[in-house]
Design a protein around this nucleic acid. Structure first.
Lengths: 156, 156
DNA sequence: TGGAAAATGTTTTTATGTAAACTAAATTCT
DNA sequence: AGAATTTAGTTTACATAAAAACATTTTCCA
């Protein structure tokens, strides 16, 4: 079975060479795969990973500066501006400029924003389970620990 | 030191809550971090991760279909078309339509493309080392194995 | 003080990536 | 054989993200 015609190339096997030893390459593939799964499961509820993550983090850390959150989530300032404006338009987020520093913008959830996060929290957390895919508990724990070390984000 | 004014928020600490247990979230952060490092080191040489990866893979697997490579690298067909055209314009890639199936397009590197890959191979591989960051050899090996399992890409 | 430098966001312009509809070629199914 | 389906890639129109230049406010320090 699966005899190759003379001169043809095996379509199923791709050689990656040293790319297979690249952390960045595998991270990229894994991440895109994860996004695919996210959209497949949660797009119907109108959730986008970036937006929902911001709402989530703002909910947990009310009053933080927009820029602080952006930096931590690796969202570029220009993009953060637009994203936050969308969330304000949607009525989920409040912007607040404090007197002692009128440059910076403090973010917090509106009641509607809180309600939105709460109502989707379950699906969001279930998704986190699903994306563990075929990893055992031990493998999962190890992976998280290593990614934590790589990213400097500790699990808190 | 670092006494907070009354009513202020600690700027340094962000709580992620259950997000900290999300594979997808950590993958996303790690991946963006990796891209940042890539651009920081290799942008000056005119390398983009996606483009160089395609050249690399085409070089290792001459004669594969454009679509096969795109699927494996998780590049969308529409984007692949444009990317390949850029590479053809640059003189790095040849498109080839075989008689036995005139729908599909076979890719291979031109001599110029080969030379380009060769001349940047070193920097590319050094970058792979750098992105291991603060991981030990053992941690690195484990991480790669787990990401391999997650993505279904085995190290070959 | 007061002017230079830094910090924080925003706007505009450009590049990158995606979705959906489309063309063309090959395959399948009576 | 010939219509219907599938496969491969392209095109167009749109969405997303990024870089660069900008405006404003604050800090630094000579």
């Amino acid at each position: 079975m699966n005899v190759q015609p003379v001169g043809a190339v095996d379509e199923d096997t791709i050689r990656f060479g040293e790319l297979g030893q690249s952390v960045g390459f595998l991270l990229r593939i894994a991440q895109l795969q994860s996004f695919d799964l996210f959209f497949q499961r949660l797009a119907s509820q109108g959730l986008k990973p970036g937006e929902f993550t911001v709402l989530w983090v703002v909910g947990l850390n009310p009053g933080l500066r927009q820029g602080t959150i952006a930096a931590r989530l690796r969202i570029k300032p220009a993009h953060m501006t637009k994203l936050v404006h969308r969330m304000v338009e949607a009525g989920y987020v409040q912007r607040n400029v404090l007197d002692h520093d009128r440059r910076s913008v403090r973010l917090s959830l509106t009641d509607k924003g809180e309600a939105f996060v709460q109502s989707h929290k379950q699906a969001f957390l279930e998704f986190h389970q699903a994306e563990r895919l075929n990893l055992t508990d031990a493998e999962f724990a190890t992976l998280m620990q290593l990614l934590g070390k790589l990213t400097g984000i500790d699990d808190t």
